[in-house]
């Protein structure tokens, strides 16, 4: 891809006007990019924060601003497990598959999640409510086995207590969806 003129493509400038006040947003970061090396990963991280995943167009924007070929950017995205090219569900369920959790029965926990939510590791449920991922270690090994749902951690789980927690999230998610329909 050709190097774009200094500054930011016009499409993004519009967004900047609206969001410049929000510190370090994706648009703001793109706008303030000054060619300093090593900014690609932070840019991708803020794109993911902004969109919930990295959409195709974000790769085009970043490539346009940084003059890094899209193929290289794609290579970096697929190398790191943090980055996702698909939208995430409303609730991201992360099951810890670290050593301590493995020893404490993470397998049964992962099976239970797959069964209860009807998703496999790495996928999003059909209703878009849940995305199920495994992570190497959440870092609260003494509470094993552990899962994280968005930013909340649930520890010392059994299949039974886990089902209860997941059902609660499903109820919450449906409620939000219903009220959104009602409002519109």
């Amino acid at each position: 891809m050709e190097k774009s003129p200094p500054g930011v493509p016009v499409v993004i400038m519009k967004g900047v006007m609206k969001t410049a006040a929000k510190k370090e947003s994706f648009n703001y970061r793109l706008w303030k990019y000054d060619g300093a090396p090593g900014e690609l990963i932070p840019l991708l991280q803020s794109a993911q924060e902004h969109f919930g995943y990295i959409p195709r167009r974000a790769i085009t924007y970043i490539s346009g601003v940084t003059a890094i070929p899209e193929s290289d950017i794609f290579g970096v995205i697929t190398f790191y497990s943090q980055f996702r090219l698909q939208p995430m569900g409303k609730f991201v369920v992360r099951a810890c598959a670290g050593t301590a959790c493995h020893v404490s029965g993470a397998k049964a926990i992962i099976d239970t999640i797959e069964d209860e939510l009807e998703v496999e590791v790495g996928d999003t449920s059909e209703d878009g409510l849940f995305t199920f991922l495994t992570v190497a270690c959440i870092g609260c090994c003494s509470l094993a086995p552990v899962i994280m749902v968005n930013d909340d951690t649930h520890g010392r789980l059994t299949p039974a207590s886990l089902r209860k927690i997941l059902k609660e999230y499903r109820r919450k998610g449906k409620k939000i969806a219903e009220s959104a329909v009602g409002a519109s």
Binding site: K107, A108, D111, T112, D115, T158, P159, A160, R163
Partner: peptide, 11 residues
């Protein structure tokens, strides 16, 4: 398959 383990509420 292990479904019985994950479905049992009483361990």
């Amino acid at each position: 398959c292990g479904k019985c383990i994950t479905s049992c509420n009483f361990g």
